[in-house]
Amino acid sequence: MRVLLQPAFILHRRPYRDSSLLLEALSMEHGRLGLVARGAAGPRSRLRGLLQPFVPLLLSWSGAGDLVTLTGAEEQQPQSSLPPARLLSGLYANELLVRLLPRRDPCPELFKAYARLLAELATAAAEEPVLRSFEKCLLSELGYGLNLEHEAHSGAPIVAEAQYQYVLDCGPLAVAGNATGVPISGRGLLALRDGTLDDPVLLREAKRLTRAALAVQLQGQLLKTRELYRVKRTPRPE
């Protein structure tokens, strides 16, 4: 099968043989896929600088099965790479996608969310709200979307002033029961739904929620990028 000029992003690359690369890419119509780029890491390759994560590309490939062969790559728009301080967040999103998204599962919505994530990471003042809304999108693409609309038992709409316990395979429960879930305020749920997380308190609540939901999907795997954040933030003992 030949595919021509498909919008895609590289998620990960590793050297393969002498001068080739093994790529992991997220494409718009073909989902996540593995590609071999023959000769792309050679000293004279035109593609060397191009096949980088976070660059919007148009990829062409041929072949079927788990690993296809890259036949061409072009830049989709002038390069708008992430500023160095935001690379870690980008790598975090890539790690989530590589670990959670099954291959060959078309996900145009997620692709758009990823493109939006990169654009916003490059420009937005705060990175956390952007990451949270991407995580929300990823969860719903995986089929485990968060219920941010209704109380799980009664079906009543979420009330901003109320407190909830979010039980992962059930939904937000009004606090009355002694459910063990992630505590979150009604305002936090609504802000996550609408993508209006500006308040640090709500951000923390939303982070706990998405983190717990992703942990279930990761089945105990630890994310390596999270380690990098942690090391960066712990103050050094003098």
């Binding site: 980088q52 994560p53 976070f54 790479s81 160095p84 301080a85 690379l87 870690l88 980008g90 790598l91 990098l228 960066k232 050094r236």
Partner: peptide, 18 residues
Amino acid sequence: PTVEGEATAAYIAALAQE
């Protein structure tokens, strides 16, 4: 000057600046 190289540089730069 690859994405990983830049991320590494940013990380070490933060260590130095601390």
